[in-house]
């Protein structure tokens, strides 16, 4: 995808120092490209370290290929970078260890996260792996709020969590995938039981 056609995140030009206006280019796993300001990148500890280590000049940023972020799709990455641009320059909160943590969801963030649960979970995942502390906080708060007053069965559906039976079935499937012989042994055992044998050996 060409840079011209790439979805561009709205940028607050006034908030960026003129002399240090550098935009990094990132590419999602579905080949969508984003230009993100240096200041916005600072919200992500992971990306900030990465660009620092790369030491790109303004020319490098334009001439070298976009930095590909695999396993994060364009839809999620767009939300991430929109959030980073909106909150650029803000202090990164420090975890004081208190639980339950208290965080207010600003209006902009609430609108940004007015999305389906699947995308919201992807946003949490992306915020965690890109280490964007405040985005992780607000997205987790939003998901935690979804639990209010819910029964265990309702919570299971909201969070798409497996039941005990599903967990056990998945465990068995994983074991069998690792060791195909295990299934053969089990089948042989069942067959012998059907034939009335007392002992497998």
């Amino acid at each position: 995808m060409s840079v011209e056609n790439a979805p561009v995140v709205d940028v607050d030009e006034a908030a960026i120092p003129v002399e240090k206006k550098m935009y990094y280019r990132f590419e999602s796993n579905d080949k969508k490209e984003f230009r993100v300001s240096e200041l916005a990148i600072q919200q992500s500890e992971t990306l900030n370290r990465l660009v620092e280590a790369m030491g790109y000049t303004s020319e490098d940023v334009e001439n070298k290929p976009a930095i590909a972020i695999e396993n994060i799709d364009g839809k999620t990455l767009k939300l991430v970078f929109q959030w980073c641009e909106h909150h650029k320059g803000e202090a990164i909160p420090v975890d004081d260890g208190s639980v339950p943590k208290i965080v207010e969801i600003p209006e902009f963030d609430a609108k940004l996260m007015d999305i389906d649960n699947g995308l919201l979970f992807k946003l949490i995942w992306a915020a965690d792996y890109l280490n964007i502390v405040q985005l992780l906080n607000v997205s987790c708060k939003k998901v935690a709020n979804m639990a209010q007053g819910k029964t265990p069965a309702q919570l299971r559906r909201v969070y798409l969590l497996p039941s005990d039976e599903e967990d056990e079935a998945a465990k068995r499937a994983a074991q069998e995938a690792q060791d195909p012989r295990a299934r053969e042994v089990e089948e042989e055992f069942e067959e012998r039981k059907r034939q009335g044998g007392n002992s497998f050996f």
């Binding site: 339950p100 987790c140 639990a147 819910k150 919570l155 299971r156 969070y159 005990d164 967990d167």
Partner: peptide, 15 residues
């Protein structure tokens, strides 16, 4: 970390 204690008890009962 952000969930109310009662909801955490409910969560504990899922599986």
């Amino acid at each position: 970390d952000f969930m109310e204690p009662l909801d955490q008890v409910s969560f504990s009962l899922i599986s």
